[in-house]
Design a binder for these strands. Structure first.
Lengths: 218, 218, 218, 218
DNA sequence: TATGAATGAGGGTTCATTCAT
DNA sequence: TATGAATGAACCCTCATTCAT
């Protein structure tokens, strides 16, 4: 056997081992998602996760440093997915209108949440207040969305597309309206599938024109 | 000493004892609010509360059945205050306009939250997922507000004051927008005082007319 | 008022105060008997006793040093009554036959037990193993009865009235047979009244016929 | 390694693990017997048992649900041993005489007690009054023995072997006589070994001679 | 790597007793 | 003397993490 062949054999072995390891990690992560989602962080014991994953106690700690660590990883994964669905606002002439971009963002958030229902449920249920690191991550995520929204709003205002407003407060309102809809659909209604498009349109309509009857001459 | 005098003396003693007891309860409740607010429910040990209250271990259990019970009582107190600020919608001709009533409700929620900052912080931070009873109470509260809002919206629609909409979703949006503002002001910004009136107006404006510049020809 | 009169007045006051005190003690003792009897020593809390007696917590400790002390006093009372029912064996010609004396003793034990049902129940249920002092008192009582019986048996043997036997073991048997009957009647059967005479005769028949020299002509 | 070899290796591992577990359980049970026997149930803390067993706190709960559970198991073990020594009465012509069967039963009880001295001591000292489940178990045991004895007595009476009697009371007497002898030998005399055969014969002599039909020429 | 028995810090609750009124 | 609020030592049990196999 040539050295090259040997190397690649070794590589193959390593690769296969790594794949095995990744599969195992994924297995445990899935089990953790289910368990955390069903029982909440504090009521979930490591024993529950390993039972759901069908692994031994010690094995858990070969893949994750602690119960807190696996939760943190799940949280990061979800937030990353959310963030990746939020594109920066493009105000170049060739770009789609700002409100179209906002619509896309809302839709992305809804879709991400819907396809990560269990995970989202955990975060909404009780990620806040767990520990300082978790709190920080959520705060950062919130801040990031908030800043993005506020910037978008300010751009819209200065371009005359949006009415004058306290962009800090309104950005918070927008975030909250979306967040609450997610919460109600995922946590409260037991994760039943919902009409993403309809919901997104309602949210957008609500955000753009508010509640009142169109004022012809306002 | 006449019998009447004796009786009132006894009454006095009873009243004083009751007052003492109430004071004591209040003392412990205050200590609990501080501790829960600062450290969160799970990281708060009974030891922390009694240290903050300056009482002995056993004394705590003289006034509250358990750590969970005192939390539940705090939660109820807060939710009751919130609920009491939400009046039913009055659509009689002599009543103020529906949007005025909504404005009052928003203001009331903001004020209640601001004057119970620590308590509100606890509820927002981690009341959800604590235990089934707490979850139920919070859900009920949410549902109550949601129903009230949805009913108001439907009234507004049928009276032609509001545009047609999916009142279920929009009620959720409204709730979320207010909730998020509270969260940001109380939890994130460390409870710094904020301009309730300004915030309420912004929220209302946001809810009523949305984000967009007035559409002259819609 | 003469000095003598005053003194006797004072005496009267003292006497009346003492009477009051004794009544109070008796009240608490009765309450303790009921509670201990119903729930057992360990499951009885001081709170139960004072509730049954209708007195305040602190009052209890004005009359008894501790929960253990009141139990000890009850125990002593009962054992004293039992002991007083056991007369020394009289073998003088003018005395009634030994087996008559034994019969009386058994009857006395039964009667004492029946008229102190609750108290006896406590002692049978769990006086043993409570603490060293209680154990000692019970052991002493047991020893005393045992010795008395053994002596009686030896007398009977040496007088040719009883068959030869290991008086130590047999004394124990006799004690046990009586004890078990009490236990069954008082503890197990809920303290329903029982026919003392019938039971005593059966016990005696059981014991005596077994112990006596063969009855050639019965 | 052949599949069969592998399987047996696995079996071996499982068996060894089970054996280890059983040993461990037995170790803790022994420690518990010692501690309960020496200090009594209530004065025994779980800390005492684990110190005696040389294990950690948590380990205890790996093998037993609670302090109460381990006591219950000890109790059951002992009562089972006692019960297994009590054979049903056989009145067929080929069977040994009824009184021989009773003799065996007494002997068995004595032997079981003697070889489980510490355990028996606990049960005698304070099993009664511990909790409802324990009480029930002891009552059931008592009832079982009592019924067995009463049935035996009735058989003996109807066969003309025994004199007429109140079999309920007399069964109680017999039980008590044996019980008291056990108590005296195991609890009071510190568990010093005793001459089982001699004691059994004395008990039997005491019981049988008393129960039998009058012996005309004995 | 996989296992699961062992660990022990941690925390909630009870209840006999004390003491200021 | 009577009260009952206050005390705090005592003790059971859980569960995240470690480690020998």
């Amino acid at each position: 056997m040539s050295q090259t062949a040997m190397e690649s054999a070794v590589d193959g072995r390593i690769t296969r081992a790594q794949a095995r390891r990744e599969n195992r990690r994924a297995l445990i992560l899935r089990a953790a998602v289910e368990t955390f989602s069903a029982r909440g962080y504090h009521r979930t014991r490591v024993a529950d996760i390993i039972k759901a994953a069908g692994i031994a106690r010690g094995t858990f700690y070969l893949y994750f440093e602690s119960k807190n660590a696996i939760f943190l990883e799940l949280l990061e994964t979800l937030l990353d997915e959310f963030v990746s669905g939020v594109d920066g606002v493009d105000i170049s002439p060739s770009a789609s209108p700002v409100y179209e971009q906002l619509l896309d963002t809302v839709r992305n958030l809804l879709i991400t949440a819907a396809s990560n229902a269990a995970l989202t449920r955990i975060v909404f249920r009780e990620a806040v207040g767990l520990d300082d690191e978790v709190d920080q991550k959520l705060s950062d995520f919130d801040d990031r969305l908030h800043e993005y929204l506020q910037q978008s709003l300010e751009n819209g205002c200065s371009m005359g597309l949006l009415r004058p407003m306290d962009t800090g407060i309104i950005a918070t309102c927008i975030l909250g309206s979306v967040r609450q809809v997610l919460y109600r659909n995922l946590v409260r209604q037991g994760g039943l599938p919902f009409d993403v498009d309809h919901v997104a349109r309602e949210i957008l309509e609500y955000n753009c024109v508010g509640l009142m009857q169109a004022r012809s001459l306002a």
